[in-house]
């Protein structure tokens, strides 16, 4: 048996960090501490506010059922907005993803421009998009659908592109080697390989759009948010609780349906 001294040196338990790496950790810690200290965190204020929360909750119960037909109609409109916005966003995401993925983009300039567009779609919050589209096309669900479409595009195009970049390069190379063009290669090798990932992303986008569609009504972009805003403005907290419960049931149903579909399809 070899004696210990003949083995190579014992490897370090922790990876060696350069001065820059160590400075990075320090900077991250400093950022967190700075953010916490400047956010006016106060346990005292939270404890003092608990009775107010209790009072609000007591005013919210029992939920009012008088406006259920109207709430049901707007809830359905909210759901339709989420479906339409997600569908249009997913459809728009596909070409944008192909143009922005490293292995499918026809040229680096097209990739750069497309990525910038997708990033812009993603970085502007959906509520801001809703305000923009309400100004552009007026109050109502159309503005909401457009806002959800843009937000879904920003979300899906990025993840679709990442899925395409991670796809096995073997089948596309095989098709290129037999003379297939770039469009045919994407359609017949890359898209089928990334389909499960794209379906999962689309279902997550649908869940996200369902939650977002509730808020869009607050700025007049249609859906149940309009009802919610009206109830809050009129201090009608029993109706507010009814709306919140209805939204909760809808979001829960959509999330469960989405999970079920993911399991079935994938």
């Amino acid at each position: 048996m070899k004696d210990r001294a003949s083995y190579p040196a014992d490897p370090p338990r922790l990876p060696h960090k350069s001065v820059f790496g160590f400075a990075g950790y320090l900077a991250a810690a400093a950022l967190i501490i700075w953010s916490l200290t400047n956010s006016e965190l106060s346990l005292t204020k939270l404890l003092q506010g608990l009775p107010e929360i209790g009072r609000l909750l007591s005013e919210m119960f029992p939920p009012a059922l008088e406006r259920m037909p109207s709430i049901g109609t707007t809830l359905l409109e909210t759901f339709q907005m989420a479906v339409a916005g997600t569908f249009l966003g997913v459809v728009l995401s596909l070409p944008l993803a192909v143009l922005s993925a490293r292995n499918t983009a026809p040229h680096w300039t097209i990739k750069a421009v497309t990525r910038a567009i997708v990033t812009a779609c993603r970085t502007v919050p959906e509520l801001i998009w809703a305000i923009i589209f309400v100004i552009a096309v007026g109050l109502g669900p159309f503005a909401g659908v457009l806002a959800l479409m843009v937000d879904t595009t920003g979300f899906c195009a990025r993840f679709f592109a990442e899925a395409m970049e991670e796809a096995d390069d073997g089948p596309p190379e095989a098709l290129r080697s037999l003379g297939a063009g770039p469009t045919a290669t994407v359609a017949t090798a890359i898209l089928p390989a990334t389909l499960p990932s794209m379906i999962a992303t689309s279902l997550f986008a649908f869940e996200k759009a369902t939650r977002a569609s509730v808020v869009l009504g607050l700025v007049g972009a249609g859906g149940i948010g309009v009802e919610l805003m009206a109830a809050i403005d009129m201090y009608d907290y029993r109706n507010v609780s009814t709306i919140i419960l209805c939204v909760f049931v809808m979001v829960l149903a959509v999330e469960n349906l989405s999970s079920l579909l993911r399991r079935k399809i994938l």
């Binding site: 073997g170 089948p171 190379e173 095989a174 017949t188 090798a189 390989a193």
Partner: peptide, 11 residues
């Protein structure tokens, strides 16, 4: 071209 890993489109 016939590849070692076959390179069929699996799905």
């Amino acid at each position: 071209v016939v590849f070692q890993r076959h390179n069929l489109v699996g799905r």
